[in-house]
Design a protein around this nucleic acid. Structure first.
Lengths: 203, 203
DNA sequence: ACCTGAACACCGTTCAAGT
DNA sequence: ACCTGAACACCGTTCAAGT
């Protein structure tokens, strides 16, 4: 049974969920697809191209049309969409962060953010800059979430190591961070960012 | 001449500037230090431990005591310090992003941010959450800066590829992003974040 | 057009043996 | 205590040869 490009990408994303990005090897992925590792090079020039295609597939829906709503809600929805897309597969955020975001999907998503911000009266230069800032926040937050979900080998909770030697405020902050829902923390930071953007809008 | 742990870390950071993180191999680093690759395992249990020590050395000064100043200025200084530290060596941001920020330096820096924010009246839980948001922004921005400084092989400016098919606002945003100083964009985003934080302070 | 089988040039890591 | 020399189990990638 012959493989198509889309089959490889689909199989690779499935493989990601069971083995993780570190386990994703051309040979192992080939085996999972009943094919030798070298055969994958009929479909992709190299592994980086495969990973890019995977990242692009992962973020497919992020740039979908936005519902009519105030700009704050629209930006909020875009941030939530992006995070949800990356959380849909194990190591999704690391996958996206590794490929330089040249994919068509990230471009249309970025364009959406810029358009929404320009609609508030911001100049395109500032809107572009803030679109990237939003990207950094969402990506960074989701990366951390997924790293904690699959701790990479020997991992000591860094609280017990040093927190006691530091400020009590810091100890309490770490303690509380560990016990609150990541989704809640994500929304709090996202809304904080949005308020920062609001402060930039010419009145 | 025998090597000490600190010599290896120092040599590795020097090596980073000339060969980049992708070129940093235990064998090649050994050769640069006039030693076989395997000898490095007398000083570090594995490569990850070496990279972590490098990242820790890189971010050494970030947690230094802060000058007396309004909280906005203090947060601004911390963000600038962190970025400057990573820019000091090629691939510095990628190095830091790869090691799980368990290093002592990132902890004391994080503690500083939390303390400053708690000083404004924010609860430790919120301060901790915002400290991580700041971390994501600075790291993400600096990663992008360094990736563009050393484009990883075949890189097409993604503007000419697709921008023309999209919104004119987006095209203008990308165009302007390419022509403005990264330091200026960084400061703009950093101050925007700070304004967002300000909106969270109980009045 | 797609795949096999085998190779090439690398990796990180380990470990006896030397000094 | 630190290093050499050589090996082990992997990588990504290439390419003749098969179907």
């Amino acid at each position: 049974m012959l493989l198509r490009k889309a089959d490889v990408v689909e199989g690779a994303l499935k493989f990601l969920d069971t083995e993780g990005l570190d386990g994703l090897t051309m040979r192992k992925l080939g085996a999972a697809l009943n094919v030798h590792g070298g055969a994958l090079y009929r479909h992709f020039p190299n592994k980086a191209a495969l990973l890019e295609a995977m990242a692009n597939k992962l973020t497919e829906g992020v740039g979908a049309p936005l519902p009519e709503a105030p700009w704050r809600d629209q930006i909020y929805v875009l941030g939530q969409r992006f995070r949800a897309a990356m959380l849909a597969h194990r190591d999704g955020a690391r996958l996206v962060s590794g490929t330089h975001a040249t994919g068509a999907n990230s471009i249309t998503a970025g364009s959406l953010v810029v358009d929404v911000l320009c609609g508030t009266g911001l100049a395109p230069a500032q809107a572009g800059s803030l679109a990237f800032s939003l990207y950094y926040y969402v990506l960074g937050h989701t990366l951390d979430e997924q790293n904690q979900a699959h701790p990479p080998e020997g991992w000591q909770s860094s609280e017990n190591q040093l927190a006691s030697t530091l400020t009590p405020e810091y100890a309490e902050a770490i303690e509380s961070l560990m016990h609150t829902d990541p989704a809640e923390r994500f929304a709090y930071g996202l809304n904080t960012f949005i308020e920062g953007v609001a402060s930039r809008i010419p009145k």
